[in-house]
């Protein structure tokens, strides 16, 4: 059996499994054992999904959520990346930041939601700050260990070949630390994706995918919930595959820091 037909076989079987799972679900939903509002049939969910996509409301929610994630993550990168590099290059910075980071890191970001609500009021600010908190530590610590793990031999070789500080930084340290930095970005995004949904549920703010799901609970709209879950899953999946995949190809793979076969 060749590799491609093996692949086709796997896809076929995967599809069959999903169809079977959908059929079982559909059977339960139609059997009437459970109330229809709690367990909507798949066509109902599909119709709801199509409706909220067509009238633009789901896109609006997705837009707000994405905006919050990007601002929060952006802030985390803006602070975490330079701070991580400083920590790795200067001992006093490391001595100061590391204890604070290790004390704050084990606190789940969602624990701060009620405090932030009191401080900043309900709404988008809280969510952005929670995302920032969730994304900061993976970014910071991965950058730190990435820069520290740059092979000292490369640094000495570059210095011996006459590289100044500037060239050393951009040509050796940054590419050398890049696999860690990209891992940090990935983790930061994953964490903030979790944090944004939770924060939107708790700090209700009219817009956002988390809010839609939570709001739908009040009205027993399980179909809206499932439709929003589909959208959340699709965005998460797209980010993981498209954004980080291409980021990896453009940087670490091109620089030959990791082999393509890895993933």
């Amino acid at each position: 059996m060749t590799a491609s037909s093996e692949r086709a076989h796997t896809i076929l079987r995967g599809t069959l499994t999903l169809l079977a799972a959908a059929a079982i679900y559909e059977g339960f939903a139609r059997s009437g054992i459970f109330p229809a509002v709690l367990l909507p049939t798949l066509p109902t969910v599909a119709r709801t999904l199509a409706a909220v996509l067509a009238d633009g409301s789901m896109l609006m929610h997705a837009f707000y959520t994405l905006q919050r994630v990007l601002i929060g993550c952006g802030l985390a990168v803006l602070i975490g990346l330079p701070l991580g590099i400083l920590m790795a290059r200067f001992r006093p910075v490391e001595n100061f930041v590391l204890p604070l980071a290790s004390a704050l890191m084990p606190i789940p970001s969602l624990a701060w939601v009620p405090v932030f609500i009191l401080w900043f009021g309900l709404g988008g600010t809280v969510t952005i700050l929670i995302v920032f908190y969730a994304a900061l530590f993976p970014m910071l610590l991965n950058t730190w260990s990435g820069v520290r793990s740059v092979n000292p031999l490369w640094l000495r070789a570059a210095s011996a070949m006459g590289a100044d500080e500037h060239a050393l930084f951009w040509k050796v340290i940054i590419p050398g630390a890049s696999p860690f930095i990209i891992t940090g970005l990935r983790q930061a995004f994953l964490r903030s994706w979790i944090a944004v949904v939770g924060a939107e549920m708790l700090a209700a703010s009219d817009w956002g995918l988390g809010w839609v799901i939570f709001d739908a609970k009040e009205f027993l709209n399980a179909d809206v919930m499932l439709a929003a879950l589909v959208v959340i899953g699709a965005i998460g999946f797209a980010f993981e595959r498209l954004v980080f995949g291409s980021l990896e190809r453009a940087t670490v793979l091109r620089w030959g820091m990791v082999r393509a076969a890895k993933s």
Binding site: T15, W193, I194, A222, L229
Partner: peptide, 20 residues
Amino acid sequence: PLVSIGAPIPGIAYAPLFLL
């Protein structure tokens, strides 16, 4: 296939559904 579909959705998003 089931695990791959469930994994990219952040767990807390399921919370209202589970509560329901």
